[in-house]
């Protein structure tokens, strides 16, 4: 198994719903609480597993705005795991990279090793925390099947987030990646991140036919055109009882 997320950059509107859902679920989740310091003060700051950033590609007027959510990529070559001296960081058989909260000594080394900014130290708890892929949802057999999904995936209003097994070629995630050419971020670093990003789709084009484009021919400007339409309206519109907007 190779569990992970697919994120669709073509539909993500950058609404932060997934980020807050993640915060909400995980506050009382397996690595909770996610402490917040100075919550009502000058420098509110807390632990989040998922953060959304907006970028602008290219310059006005051709610029595009791209919203990029980022959470743990559950890398196959997760250096965050190999650098961890205590064994707190580990990768399960299903690919989920986790931090065993009881073993971590809070040295930050794993966060240094992570290229994607996926790990955040909970300064109040003294331990490293990160996206668990909502293991406490997907593993919870007492939840109905439809609910065994990460909180961020369930909540995303644009369905820009998919969860599944990348090892299974028929899974929703594998199919989406194949169809849409999903890409990994910074593969050159060799972490083999599992999460994939679907690039913006090619823009749909509307080909305007010559018929649609053709300007009405008339002389005499507006009055001429109206005159022409007056003459033509018998052909343009049949009796009210006919055709009936529906029966061809």
């Amino acid at each position: 198994m190779k569990l992970g997320l697919v994120i669709d950059l073509d539909t993500c509107v950058g609404c932060h719903a997934c980020a807050v859902a993640c915060k909400q679920w995980n506050a009382s989740g397996t690595t909770g609480p996610l402490s917040d310091t100075d919550p009502y003060g000058a420098e509110p700051s807390g632990v989040w597993f998922n953060r959304i950033r907006n970028y602008e590609v290219d310059t006005h007027p051709d610029s595009k705005t791209v919203n990029v959510p980022m959470s743990c990529m559950h890398c196959e070559e997760a250096a965050c795991v190999t650098v961890c001296p205590t064994g707190a960081s580990w990768k399960r058989e299903d690919g989920i990279v986790l931090v065993d909260q009881s073993k971590c000594m809070g040295c930050n080394l794993c966060a240094w090793a992570c290229p994607y900014g996926a790990r955040e130290l909970d300064e109040e708890s003294g331990v490293m925390k990160k996206c668990t892929l909502c293991v406490d949802r997907i593993d919870d057999q007492s939840l109905p099947e439809s609910q065994r999904q990460p909180a961020c995936v369930l909540t995303c209003p644009t369905s820009a987030r998919l969860f599944g097994d990348f090892d299974d070629p028929d899974s929703e995630v594998s199919r989406a990646v194949a169809e849409r050419g999903g890409v990994a971020q910074m593969p050159e670093l060799g972490y083999a991140p599992v999460n994939r990003y679907l690039p913006p789709r090619d823009k749909p084009q509307v080909e305007v036919s010559d018929d649609t484009r053709a300007e009405a021919q008339s002389t005499g400007g507006a009055a001429g055109l109206i005159g022409k339409w007056m003459k033509r309206q018998r052909d343009a519109f049949d009796r009210l009882g006919s055709r009936d907007g529906g029966d061809a």
Partner: peptide, 21 residues
């Protein structure tokens, strides 16, 4: 970010204040 054809600039980092990172 896999956008290699044109300039890329951060518009908003998603948090006004500081974070662990």
């Amino acid at each position: 970010l896999n956008f290699t054809q044109a300039s890329v600039r951060l518009l908003d980092v998603g948090h006004s204040g500081g974070t662990f990172h």
